[in-house]
Amino acid sequence: MTCQNTLSCLDQLVDNELTDEKKAQVMEHINACDKCKKEFEELKQIKYLLSKVKTNEPSEEYWSEVTGLINARTLDVEPVDSDYRSHTEQLSIKRNSLLRSIISTAAALAILFTALLLGSQQNQVSLAQIGTGSPVLATADVRDLLSSDNKALFSANDQRHLAQGMLLVGIPGVLGRFAALPELMIITE
């Protein structure tokens, strides 16, 4: 057995992969050769130390948290089969969210038109007072906008600004909500 032969099978020796016969030959050389013996001892040591490296097991709390996160992250994943259970669940979640969008959009539009309507009524109130002395189209709500001496608390300009503000806030919001529509159409097909 030469040094070269011995060194070439040191890994197999420490991994216990040699036949008994081969192992005996290698050990015989190692016991007689300081250079190879040193290499062998060091390699054995490395393997021993690595075998002592351990990973702590995380807590049950961590595992239940991480399992929840994995489940949440796989919710949006396109399933393999079209009849897969969570597919219908997913669709119903998306439909509900669209419904909520439509309702909130309608609510935003309602507020916008109320603001515009208030603006026009205010003008009519002023006109009516000039003409007949009593407000023709005024409602209780509009009267709240008048001070005790029947002067408008909000000028026509204020109301125009309010309406413009509503449009600025409202339009991107409405567009944003309906931007999700194409995605939903694809899934529905």
């Binding site: 990973t55 595992w63 991480v66 399992t67 489940n71 796989t74 399933p79 897969y84 969570s86």
Partner: peptide, 15 residues
Amino acid sequence: GDENAFAELIKRFRQ
């Protein structure tokens, strides 16, 4: 498509 099977596989291999 069995979600419980997925959970069980996670449990067996997570560590």
